[in-house]
Design a binder for these strands. Structure first.
Length: 561
RNA sequence: UGGCCUAUGGUGUAAUUGGUAACACAGCUGAUUUUGGUUCAGUCGUUCAAGGUUCGAGUCCUUGUAGGCCAACCA
């Protein structure tokens, strides 16, 4: 019955083939392997959804493995943030692993390679080693230390481990092929000396394994069947396989690396280095600034895990370069928020409106539906009075037929309330409209069932009652960059495209029910967009972030002019 | 002047492995609507190029072209 029509991506095709050719379902195991040197971003979310999605699809375990082999960049803070982000996205890892847990095993295997004559200690400077590497078009040359005796190598390597040498004095290299067309096969460094404390192993080790020597072996130790990484690691695959060739037990499962293209998002950057730059230069307030494409930024902005997962599913996975339009992300935010966000009324750019024929001092509580998409959401009461705020953009002295909002002599419905007619307006000395006077039809009350209440008027406005409203800070966000591909220009730096208007803080006026809102709560401010309560909020002051606007066909029409 | 990877509407991804190129977003029309939201209906538009194999090619072959990756004691 529930036959899935969903087509497979190329990774799933590979797995299906493997399953046909001898892998059992029990062999399948995946992993998500972040380096704890920064916060996770929307690109990582794709990888997380890929790996954990595979785990769900095949009922296979997925490890969370920290690739923590470089103590100069890695910190516990990032480990904690990464765990929080993965959990928030809704995934459960099978085992929490650390490459640093395998340092002893890796060391033992390295000794084994030395004994087999497949690794040696090089005592040259990194510059010398680099100069012997050759270029992509020219072969490299061999190190003068390449043919040291096994005994000497063992002794030096042990010395490295025992802190007998300065950083940079020696490295351990794999002995492969200095003339390989693949630069990575030209005797890659396996270990370097680093006199730095590690966030987990502290000072137990002063030699640290390099990525290539660590990653595939970690996969092997964990018996990961499919080790998925981004395309730039494709040339590493040959090395990944070479290392495995040296120590794999044929009884055990041999992991395979496969590569996919990282996902790029328009109007932003997805690179830890560049995101770090935004943080360090103060363009944003931190890694979780709501304008950041980090998972923590999106979370604070009001995005839901569902929206992000649906987004990742929709864009899929492939091997070609790509720039996914941010409007697709926004679509998924709206799609989910539309279903779950309670509707409330808030005015962000207030214009006073006085109902001249409404009794002074009178108040009424009107029934308002919480979510037309969800009957179970129920309803609430909103206060109505003689003096209201409406949005400045919702009133014009005169306008053409296309303008469905309020204009002098025109009628409009106040959401959940009455039909009103604009009679006059007052202006300040500069000609700005400061107040609108109107009359209301007492028989037109929403839901009253009267003939007048059933009348069709073209426009409906949201509003708040001035005596009942409270003020809140609203942070209105726009795209962080003005260019779709800020880092896609050879002659310009991505920082040149930072949008100076990406954040505008305004004071909004809210209906009283919103006062109960807690940090993280999401709302739809009717006719405006989706907003959530920011973590900066306190007992005294509520602060909202605008997650995303509603689709706005009127704004589009206006823009075309 | 090397090696490897990639090329499908504006964007992203599919195509039962050689059998009518589809889905989503974006755009545009219209209907519905007490949110110019939602929903619904319709519409626009696609296989990098040139050859070849074949009854038949997005898919296979050849040659181009374009883009990307590779010379960290980073991952």
């Amino acid at each position: 019955m529930e036959e899935e029509v969903k087509s497979l991506n190329f990774i799933e095709h590979i797995i299906e083939e493997d399953l046909e050719e001898g892998y059992t379902k029990n062999d399948l195991r995946f992993r998500f392997p972040p380096e704890p040197n920064g916060y996770l971003h929307i690109g990582h979310a794709s990888s997380i959804c890929l790996n954990f999605g595979l785990g769900l699809r095949y009922n296979a375990p997925v490890n969370l493995r920290f690739d923590d082999t470089n103590p100069t960049k890695e910190e516990q803070e990032f480990v904690d943030a990464i765990k929080e982000d993965v959990s928030w996205l809704g995934y459960k890892w099978d085992t929490e692993c650390y490459a640093s847990d395998y340092f002893q095993q890796l060391y033992d295997w390295a000794i084994q390679l030395i004994k087999q004559g497949k690794a040696y200690v090089d005592s040259q400077s990194s510059e010398e080693i680099a100069s012997q590497k050759g270029t992509p078009t020219e072969p490299g040359s061999e190190s003068p230390f390449r043919n040291r005796s096994v005994e000497e190598n063992l002794k030096l390597f042990e010395g490295m481990k025992n802190a007998e040498f300065e950083e940079g004095a020696h490295v351990l290299r794999a002995k492969i092929d200095m003339s390989s067309p693949n630069m990575l096969m030209r005797d890659p460094v396996m270990y370097r000396v680093l006199h730095k404390a590690h966030h987990r192993t502290n000072t137990d080790w002063c030699i640290y394994p390099m990525y290539d020597w660590t990653h595939g072996e970690s996969d092997y130790i964990e018996q990961v069947s499919h080790s998925l990484c981004t395309l730039e690691f494709l040339p590493h695959r040959e090395l990944y396989d070479w290392f495995l060739d040296q120590l794999v037990d044929s009884e055990k499962l041999r992991p395979k690396q496969r590569e996919f293209a990282r996902r790029n998002l328009s109007h932003t950057v997805v690179s830890k280095r560049k995101l770090l730059q935004l943080v360090q230069t103060g363009v944003v307030s931190g890694w979780d600034d709501p304008r950041m494409p980090t998972i923590s930024g999106l979370r604070r902005r009001g995005y839901t895990p569902e929206a992000i997962r649906n987004f990742a599913d929709t864009i899929g996975i492939a091997k070609r370069e790509n720039v996914v339009d941010v409007s697709l992300l926004e679509f998924h935010a709206r799609e989910h928020l539309n279903k779950i966000a309670p509707r409330v009324m808030a005015v962000l750019n207030p214009l006073k409106l006085v109902i001249t024929n409404y009794e002074e001092g009178k108040e009424e509580w009107l029934e308002a539906e919480n979510n037309p998409e969800d009957e179970s959401a129920g309803s609430r009461q909103v206060p109505f009075s003689r003096e209201l705020y409406i949005e400045k953009e919702d009133f014009r002295e005169e306008a053409n037929r296309k303008f469905f909002r309020l204009k002098l002599g025109g009628e409009v419905r106040l959401k959940n309330g009455y039909i009103i007619k604009a009679e006059s307006c007052t202006k300040d000395s500069e000609g700005n409209i400061t107040e609108v006077q109107c009359t209301y039809d007492p028989k037109s009350k929403s839901g009253s069932g009267t003939e007048e209440s059933l009348r069709k008027v073209k426009g409906t406005l949201h509003w708040v009652s001035i005596p009942h409203a409270f003020a809140a800070e609203v942070r209105v966000y726009d795209r962080l960059f003005t260019d779709p591909t800020p880092d896609g220009h050879k002659d310009k730096d991505f920082m040149d495209f930072v949008n100076p208007d990406s954040l505008t803080k305004v004071t909004g006026y809210m209906e009283p029910s919103i006062k109960e809102a807690k940090i993280g709560d999401r709302f739809q401010f009717q006719r405006l967009g989706y907003f959530n309560v920011d973590t900066d909020s306190s007992e005294e002051k509520i602060i909202f972030n605008r997650t995303v606007t509603l689709r706005d066909t009127w704004a589009k029409l206006e823009q075309k002019k």
